[in-house]
Design a protein around this nucleic acid. Structure first.
Length: 546
RNA sequence: GCCCCUGUAGCGCAAUGGAUAGCGCAUUAGCCUCCGGAGCUAGUGGUACAGGUUCGACUCCUGUCAGGGGCACCA
C-alpha cells in the first residue's frame, strides 16, 4: 500500500475530470482529509461545488457525472481498486470516498512499529529558518509577556524542526544604547544611596529592588562608574538565561547589538541603501524612504543630533540574518511593535528580498488572574508579574501549556489557581493523565505486542475513531505551519485525550482474549506515541505516573 | 484621528470557506466487586448588530456598537 493516498486520489480525480470532459487540471485545493467520524467519508472533494458556476449545472449533477467517471478509473487502478470501498455523492454535492478499514490499521501499525518517526512529514525540505523571539532588554527579569513569547517561539521552532525545517532560535540582545545608560544611572544612584547620600530617584529609572542588589555587588567588586551599565546588563542577562533555562527554552544564538555596531555592518547597510536611492537627508536627519514599499511615512535612521534610532541597527540586523543563509525569518514581537512591521518589511524589500521572507508574529499579552480576579501588580519584584513568579507557582509544564492554548494573536487569560488544579478543568492534567493512564495499563500487561498482529479486530466505533484521531496529528502540524502558530497542537491533544478516555471507559483492554487484548494494547500504544510526541513538541513532560 | 487584536451558552474558550457549531466550568441526573474516578454518560443553554461576496459564512468584505492594546527624530 502506498503512503500518499491523498496524492493518488487527487491524481485520480484530475484524470476523471479530464476523461469525463468536465474540466482540465485542478491539482490542489480539491481535497480535504476528514478522518474523523463526525464527517462523511474518509476523504472528500468539493470540486463539483466549485465547478457548478462555470459549468452552469447544479453541483449534484456534476458530482454524479464525476463519480461515474471515477468508478471507471478505479477499476483500472490496481492500488486503489482494493482500497476504496465506496465513492458517492452526498450533501450539497460532495464526492466522498470510503476506504477499506485496513488502510487505517496499516497506518496504526506504522506508528507502533516506527514510533515517532512515522509521524514525521517533510514539509520543510531542509529550508533554513531563523526564529527570533523574547529579545527582551537586559534591564530586568522577564515578564509574562516575554514568557508567552518564549513558549510560543520555542514550540513553533520544535514543530518546524519536526516537519523538516532547519531551525535556529535567536535572541537579539539590546546590550547598548539608551536603556543600558539608564540602567547604569539607576545603579549609580542606588550606590550613592547605599553610601548614605540622600537621593531623588527619577520615575523613568529602573525601580525594582534588584537594582539595589546589583549596586551592592558593584560596590564589592569596585566597578568603575562608566562600566556600571554593562556590569548591570551582564548581571541581569545571567538571571534571564537562568529563567529561560528553567522554562525549558534554549537559544542557539545570542546576537549582540553592541557587536553588530562594532562590526561596521550598520554603515555598510546605509551605503547599500544609499546606492539604491532609498536614503535622503532632511532637517539635518537621515531618512529611510520606507514609503517606497507601502509604509505610511518615511522613517528617521540618524537623528539630527547624529545618533542612530533603533531602526538603524535593526535594518542591518535583518539583512545580516539573510546573509547568514536563512531564507525564512520569523520574528515574534509584542503588540506594541505592530506599527513597526511595515518599516522593517520595507527595509528587507529595499535589500531585494520578498516581503514574505519575513513573517512577523504578534504575540498578544497575557493577563494573569487568581480565582477570577485580575492581578494588577507583582507584590515581590516591582512593576510587573514575572516569568519567575509564574514558574514558582504553577511549574513549567502548566505554564507552557497555558501560554500556548489560545491563538497567539488573541489576548490570553491565565488563571494561576486553575493552572494548579488537578482536574479536568485543567487541560494540562487532562492530557498528561491520559498518557500516564496508558503507561499504567501497559505496565500491568504481560501480553507482548507483536509487529504482525491482526489489528482488524479493532472494529468498535470508539476504536476506529481513535485511530482516525491519531492520523489527524499530521494535519494539525500542517495547520501550525500555515498559520505560524503552534496553538492548534494544544487543541488537538485535548481532543485526542478525550477520544482515548471515551474508548477506555467503554472497552476493556486487559483480560480479553489474547488477540483482542494485543490489538487494543497496540492501539493505546499508538495513542501514547502521538501524545508523547505532541507534548514533546509543546516542551511539556510526558509523565508515566502522576 | 489613524492602526492592531477581540466579540460564539451564565463564565472561559474551540471549529484549515463546507455537511448536525464542539469542549471545560457552573448547574441537574447517573456510572467504580473490574486495566488509574485526575475519568465517563445524559440534560440545560448559541454565532453582538446591519448589509455584501459565495453553491455554501462563526470564518472573507463594508459599516455600526462594545471591550483591550498601540501611535515618537523612544527602545
Amino acid at each position: 500500500m502506498k503512503n500518499d493516498i491523498q496524492q493518488e486520489l487527487i491524481a485520480l480525480v484530475n484524470a476523471s475530470l479530464a476523461h469525463s470532459g468536465l474540466a482540465a487540471d485542478y491539482k490542489d485545493d480539491i481535497f480535504l482529509e476528514l478522518p474523523t467520524d463526525k464527517r462523511f467519508g474518509d476523504f472528500t472533494t468539493n470540486i463539483a461545488l466549485k465547478l457548478s458556476k462555470e459549468l452552469k449545472q447544479p453541483p449534484r449533477v456534476i458530482a454524479s457525472q464525476l463519480v461515474e467517471s471515477i468508478r471507471k478509473e478505479i477499476k483500472n487502478n490496481a492500488d486503489l481498486k482494493d482500497l476504496i470501498t465506496q465513492v458517492k455523492v452526498e450533501g450539497a454535492g460532495f464526492v466522498n470516498f470510503y476506504l477499506q478499514e485496513n488502510y487505517f490499521y496499516e497506518k496504526l501499525r506504522r506508528i507502533i512499529t516506527q514510533g515517532k518517526e512515522a509521524l514525521k512529514i517533510d514539509l520543510g525540505k531542509g529550508k533554513k529558518v531563523l526564529i527570533e523571539f523574547v529579545s527582551a532588554n537586559p534591564t530586568g527579569s522577564l515578564s509574562v509577556a516575554h514568557a508567552r513569547q518564549a513558549a510560543v517561539g520555542d514550540c513553533l521552532a520544535n514543530v518546524l524542526s519536526f516537519i523538516g525545517f532547519k531551525v535556529s532560535r535567536e535572541y537579539y540582545l539590546n546590550d547598548e544604547g539608551n536603556q543600558i545608560n539608564i540602567l547604569g544611572k539607576s545603579v549609580q544612584l542606588r550606590l550613592k544611596e547605599l553610601k548614605g547620600e540622600s537621593i531623588e530617584f527619577p520615575q523613568n529609572y529602573y525601580q525594582g529592588d534588584y537594582i539595589k542588589d546589583i549596586a551592592q555587588e558593584a560596590d564589592n567588586k569596585k566597578i568603575k562608574e562608566e562600566d556600571l551599565g554593562d556590569f548591570a546588563a551582564g548581571h541581569i542577562l545571567k538571571i534571564i538565561k537562568q529563567e529561560l533555562d528553567d522554562f525549558g527554552v534554549k537559544f542557539d544564538c545570542w546576537y549582540s547589538q553592541k557587536e553588530l555596531a562594532k562590526s561596521g555592518k550598520v554603515e555598510q547597510g546605509f551605503e547599500q541603501l544609499k546606492q539604491k536611492g532609498f536614503l535622503y537627508e532632511q532637517d539635518g536627519a537621515l531618512w529611510f524612504k520606507s514609503t517606497a514599499f507601502g509604509d505610511d511615512k518615511d522613517r528617521v535612521i540618524i537623528k539630527s543630533d547624529g545618533s542612530q534610532t533603533y531602526l538603524a541597527p535593526d535594518i542591518a540586523y535583518h539583512e545580516d540574518k539573510f546573509k547568514r543563509g536563512y531564507s525564512w525569518l520569523i520574528n515574534l514581537w509584542g503588540p506594541d511593535h505592530h506599527g513597526y512591521i511595515n518599516r522593517i518589511k520595507a527595509s528587507i524589500e529595499a535589500f531585494g528580498h520578498k516581503k514574505d521572507d519575513l513573517s512577523i508574529v504578534i504575540v498578544q499579552l497575557a493577563t494573569i488572574f487568581r480565582n477570577g480576579q485580575e492581578i494588577q501588580m507583582s507584590t515581590r519584584r516591582g512593576q510587573y508579574i514575572t516569568l519567575r513568579e509564574v514558574l514558582d507557582e504553577v511549574g513549567a509544564d502548566a505554564a507552557r501549556f497555558f501560554f500556548l492554548m489560545r491563538r497567539t494573536s488573541s489576548h490570553l487569560d491565565f488563571d494561576l489557581e486553575v493552572a494548579k488544579k488537578q482536574s479536568s478543568e485543567n487541560p494540562v492534567y487532562y492530557v498528561q493523565y491520559a498518557h500516564a493512564r496508558i503507561c499504567s495499563i501497559l505496565r500491568s500487561s504481560s501480553v507482548t505486542i507483536k509487529d504482525d498482529l491482526d489489528l482488524s479486530v479493532l472494529g468498535e466505533k470508539e476504536e476506529l475513531s481513535l485511530i482516525k484521531k491519531l492520523l489527524e496529528f499530521e494535519a494539525t502540524l500542517n495547520i501550525c505551519l500555515v498559520t505560524s502558530d503552534p496553538y492548534m497542537l494544544t487543541v488537538y491533544l485535548q481532543e485526542l485525550s478525550e477520544s482515548f478516555h471515551k474508548f477506555y471507559d467503554l472497552h476493556r483492554v486487559l483480560g480479553q482474549d489474547d488477540a483482542l487484548t494485543g490489538a487494543r494494547l497496540a492501539l493505546i500504544k499508538g495513542v501514547k506515541i502521538v501524545l508523547a510526541s505532541g507534548l514533546g513538541l509543546l516542551g511539556i513532560t510526558q509523565p508515566e505516573k502522576m
